[in-house]
């Protein structure tokens, strides 16, 4: 156990825990765009910056990304000091310049009083903040279908050779976890189109509703040993089946008790 102070409150944390997790658990709100529970901290969006100091630092303090900073004994953390707010404003100002049309960035910036960027906005940009959640989560899912391509100004998220990615299964992990929702996909009942590839959507054998893509189901049954039949039925129909099963178990138990 490590004892530290966050915004004047003494809190306890486990050794090795990151500041962001501890602060959030204690109810202190810290914005972050590149953070995702399922993947390693990345420190890309710079929004989770907090001020840290210690008694023995004699008034000196430091500003760190809380997602990447492990807790330390006797650390004094300020999540909303004047300087921290200032830093976040600057970051949001820059992000607003990059993504002037992103509702998510605009709202977050507005919360910090940044309604207009003081930089030259990228008018026809793609609203991608290059947080890397999509590529990292794709890797975590076991596919590594997309990655960042190029560097500096030219860096973008793209599939290899900028062609339809051979390793993609259309699971949507990239698109659904994107903080600025800039990875498009089209579902039209029987097919899904994402990253320039078209996937077949499995139709629920009970109700006909589309479930997941055939490729994703095949990958899951292969790597996670889930029977392929499981994906032939949608979640709702699965639940209906469960209630029937539970009902028959209850009946059976009643019969057995007699």
């Amino acid at each position: 156990m490590v004892e530290l102070t966050i915004n004047g409150r003494v809190v306890h944390a486990n050794e090795g825990e990151m500041l962001l997790a501890v602060c959030r658990r204690e109810g202190f709100r810290i914005p972050a765009l590149c953070h995702h529970e399922a993947i390693e901290p990345f420190g890309a969006c710079r929004l989770c910056m907090v001020e840290i100091t210690k008694k023995e630092w004699k008034g000196w303090s430091n500003y760190v990304t809380s997602c990447l900073y492990p807790v330390e004994k006797n650390l004094i953390v300020l999540t909303d000091s004047t300087k921290v707010i200032e830093l976040r404003k600057t970051v949001l100002d820059l992000q607003l310049a990059r993504c002037p049309n992103s509702p998510e960035i605009r709202q977050l910036a507005a919360e910090y009083g940044v309604n207009q960027t003081s930089y030259e906005p990228v008018v026809d940009g793609d609203n991608c903040i290059l947080c890397g959640i999509c590529t990292r989560i794709c890797e975590k899912m076991g596919f590594s279908a997309i990655s960042t391509v190029g560097r500096g100004h030219d860096k973008v998220v793209a599939p290899p050779l900028k062609e339809a990615p051979p390793d993609c299964v259309g699971c949507l992990a990239c698109s659904l976890n994107c903080p600025t929702h800039v990875i498009p996909y089209i579902d039209n009942g029987s097919t899904r189109i994402i990253w320039g590839r078209t996937f077949e959507l499995i139709k629920c054998s009970k109700c006909g509703k589309p479930t997941i893509t055939r490729d994703f189901a095949e990958s899951l049954s292969k790597t996670k040993s889930i029977p392929a039949e499981y994906f032939e039925v949608c979640d709702e129909c699965h639940r209906r089946e469960i209630s029937l099963t539970m009902g028959s178990i209850a009946n059976w138990e009643r019969e057995a008790a007699k």
Binding site: A145, G150, P160, P165, P166, D167
Partner: peptide, 12 residues
């Protein structure tokens, strides 16, 4: 190595 990684490195 995932193809995406190879491409990422090649373009970096």
């Amino acid at each position: 190595v995932p193809l995406s990684k190879v491409f990422s490195v090649s373009t970096f």
